[in-house]
Design a protein around this nucleic acid. Structure first.
Lengths: 271, 271
DNA sequence: AATCCGAGGGCTGTATACAAGTGCGCAACA
DNA sequence: TGTTGCGCACTTGTATACAGCCCTCGGATT
C-alpha cells in the first residue's frame, strides 16, 4: 500500500487531487489510521500519495480549518490530539446546533415531508436489531432534519463538527444504539417537528443528542480503558506529546485564538 | 503602485504572506471593500498584493473554509453573497453557541473571576453614552465569557461565525447599543454566571443575543432600504451570479488608493 | 443579417525550483 | 565521560513554470 495506488484506487482520481487527498487524510484521521499526535509532513505525504506538495498542502489547510490537524509552532501540522474529556463538549455543541435545526425544521415542515420523517422513524424501529442499520437510518433522519431546517449556517457548523464526532465514535467502537429508548427519542423528535412545535422540537432533539452523548461517552470510556490496559499505546502513541494541559488557568492573555474553521465534508451522519 | 505597498505597510509583512493576505482579504470582505458577489482571481490578487499565487491561494482556501468566499462551479471563488434574511439565522446559531459558553462559564467560574466580570459590566454602564466604547467593552465581556467557558470547540465555531456576524454588523452601520436595556442584559448574564447557575446563564445569554439580533436586524433593514432606495433591487436578494455591487456603498476594483486598508481589526467582537 | 466555428486569452490546478529557518546528530574538547 | 559547538539534512514557505479548460470575441459562412 502506501504508494500512489491509494489515490488512484476508487474514483478518487476523478476529483481534484487536493480534494481527494483531503478526503483520504480526513478518513484516515477519523478511523485512527493516522494516530492522534502524529506529525504529517508534506514531502512524505506527497510521495506516499503520488501527488505534488501543492495539493497536499491544500488538503492540510482544509484539515486544519476543520481542527482535524493542529498547527505546530514551527510550522507544519500534526494530527489533532484526542482528548476524551472533550467528547462531552463536542456533543454539547452538537446538541445545540441540532436542536436549532430541529426548531427550524418544525417551523418550516409541510405535510408531505411529515410522511418521509415518520417513515424513517418506522424504518428505524423495524431494523432496531441491527445497529449498523439503525446507524444508517439515523444518519438519514438527521440529514432530513437538516434539509428541512434549511439553515445553511447551522448546517455548515454541523459539518464542521462532524469530523470530531466521527472521531470519537470511531474510538467508541460500537455502542449499543438499537434500543427502544433510542428509537423512541427519534419518534419524539419527529412528532414535535411534525406538529410544528419549534420549542418542543428543539428540546426533544437536544435531549436526544445528550442521550446519545451519554451512550457514546460510556462506550468511549470502556474502549479507552480497554485500549490503555495492555500497553499504553501501540504504534503511534504520542497522544499528548507535550503540554499536558494541567489546569484551568483562566488567564485572559489569549485574546486571539485565530483559527478559522471549515465546513465542506461529505454526507455522513450519525445516529 | 498600490499593489505591493499594501502588504508591506504595517507589520503585516512580519507574518507569513499567506496569513497577511488572509487577514487583509478577510477585513476587506467584512467591511465591504470587496463587494458581495465580486469575483476574486488569483493572478489579480497576486499582483495587487505583491505576493505570488501560492499564498493567495492559501488565503482563499481559508476564507472559503470560513464561508466568506464561495466556490464557483468553474473553479475560483467569489465573495460570498450577503443575504439579509440570513442574518437572523446567523444570530440564532450564535445565540446557542454563546449560550453554551455562558453555561460552561457558570460551571467553572471562581471567585476572583467574578470580580473581572462585574468590573466589565460596571465599565460598560459607565461608558454607555459612547457606542464605540460599549462595543469594545462588550467585546471584552464576551471574550471573557469565552475564556471562562474553556470550551474550545464552541469557541472555534464562534470564531467561524464571527466573520459572518461582523459582515452584517458592518452593513448595519451603527445600531444604538448604549441603552440601559443593553447594559442590563449584560448584568443579568454576569449575575447568572457569577452565581454559578448554568441554566440561568445559558438562558440569559441566549436572550441577550436574540435581543441584540433584533437591534441588528432593525438597523440592517434600515440600511438595506436606504442603500437600495434608488435602484429597485433589494440589496443582495439572493445569489446573483454576476454583476454584483447592488447593495452597499463601497465598490472595490478601485486599484488605486494608497492604503485604504487601515485597521485589520484583528480583535473585534461585538456587543 | 444571423449563426456557427475557430483562435485567443485568462484562469485554475498541479508540479517543480529556490531560499531560509530549525532541530538533530555527530564530533571534538574539557 | 559529559558537555558544547558545529554542520547537515529536513522542513516549511514562496515563487515560478507548465498543462488543460472555459469563456469570449472575431470572422466566415449560409
Amino acid at each position: 500500500m502506501t504508494s500512489a495506488a491509494i489515490l488512484s484506487s476508487g474514483d478518487l482520481r476523478r476529483q481534484s487531487g487536493a480534494r481527494a487527498t483531503y478526503e483520504l487524510l480526513r478518513a484516515q484521521i477519523i478511523d485512527g489510521t493516522l494516530a492522534p499526535g502524529e506529525r504529517l509532513t508534506e514531502p512524505v505525504l506527497s510521495t506516499q500519495l503520488g501527488v505534488s506538495r501543492t495539493p497536499v498542502r491544500e488538503a492540510l489547510r482544509l484539515l486544519q480549518a476543520e481542527s482535524l490537524v493542529v498547527e505546530l509552532p514551527t510550522g507544519g501540522v500534526r494530527v489533532a490530539p484526542l482528548d476524551v474529556d472533550d467528547a462531552r463538549r463536542v456533543y454539547d455543541v452538537r446538541a445545540r446546533l441540532e436542536g436549532l435545526l430541529a426548531r427550524d425544521a418544525a417551523e418550516r415542515i409541510r405535510a408531505e415531508e411529515v410522511v418521509a420523517l415518520n417513515r424513517l422513524v418506522d424504518l428505524m424501529a423495524a431494523v432496531r436489531d441491527h445497529d449498523d442499520e439503525v446507524l444508517r437510518v439515523g444518519a438519514d433522519f438527521h440529514a432530513l432534519v437538516e434539509t428541512l431546517a434549511d439553515n445553511r449556517w447551522c448546517a455548515a457548523l454541523m459539518h464542521q463538527l462532524r469530523g470530531q464526532v466521527d472521531r470519537y465514535r470511531a474510538l467508541a467502537a460500537h455502542e449499543r444504539i438499537g434500543t427502544n429508548e433510542h428509537v423512541d427519542e427519534h419518534r419524539l423528535v419527529a412528532q414535535a417537528i411534525a406538529s410544528g412545535d419549534p420549542d418542543a422540537a428543539e428540546v426533544a432533539m437536544r435531549d436526544h443528542i445528550h442521550s446519545s452523548a451519554a451512550l457514546a461517552e460510556q462506550a468511549l470510556r470502556l474502549a479507552s480503558v480497554a485500549a490503555s490496559g495492555p500497553s499504553t499505546a501501540p504504534a503511534g502513541s504520542a497522544a499528548m506529546p507535550r503540554v499536558p494541559a494541567p489546569a484551568t488557568t483562566v488567564t485572559a492573555e489569549s485574546t486571539t485564538p485565530a483559527e478559522p474553521i471549515a465546513a465542506p465534508a461529505s454526507s455522513d451522519e450519525q445516529e
